[in-house]
């Protein structure tokens, strides 16, 4: 199985302000890597989830996500945004954006990886390390260490 995240899926300088633009920028990275087959279709699925309930979490986190038929490999695209992007959290915009893409279908083991990623997201130490990671490489190493334990 290919990795959850690679350096090509990290964007340390995400365009600010607009939720749609930020999500689309990350989705395009997924598409370029062949992890998403249809960017528009995938974004529609993400939007549908976002409309149910905004995915912003207090502490500067946005986690747009979807299980979608347009996803081939469970993937994480990570973006950092100095200006902040509003994901509907009560305490303001998010500076860490995690776009989680999961293939449609059930019972697959790879869902556990996404689950352990989600669990890490509530830890301040993890969030702070991501804020200060100097390079995409450092981000990937950090996530692999924390989420996959390697």
């Amino acid at each position: 199985m290919s990795d959850l995240i690679t350096v090509d899926l990290v964007e340390l300088d995400l365009p600010g302000q607009d939720r749609k633009a930020a999500t689309a920028a990350l989705a395009n990275r997924l598409a370029k890597e062949g992890r998403v087959t249809d960017v528009e279709g995938f974004l529609a699925d993400v939007r549908a989830r976002e409309e149910q309930l905004p995915t912003g979490i207090e502490g500067g986190i946005g986690i747009p996500h979807a299980r979608s038929a347009h996803v081939t490999t469970p993937s994480l695209a990570f973006g950092r945004c100095a200006d902040g992007v509003d994901f509907g959290a009560s305490d303001g915009p998010a500076d860490l954006v995690f776009l989680i893409a999961a293939p449609d279908g059930e019972g697959a083991e790879h869902m556990t990886i996404l689950a352990s990623l989600a669990r890490r997201l509530v830890h301040d130490s993890f969030k702070n390390a991501l804020r200060t990671a100097p390079t995409p490489d450092a981000v990937v190493t950090l996530i692999e260490k924390e989420v996959l334990g390697r």
Binding site: R49, Q52, L53, T55, I57, I63, H65, A66, R67, I100, A102, M111, L114, A115, S116, A118, R119, R120, L121, V122, H123
Partner: peptide, 19 residues
């Protein structure tokens, strides 16, 4: 338990365990 079942479900679980 959350609508998509890949993110908030687990974040909530972790947060509850920590608290």
């Amino acid at each position: 338990s959350c609508p998509t079942g890949i993110a908030h479900t687990y974040m909530a679980a972790e947060a509850l365990e920590q608290a």
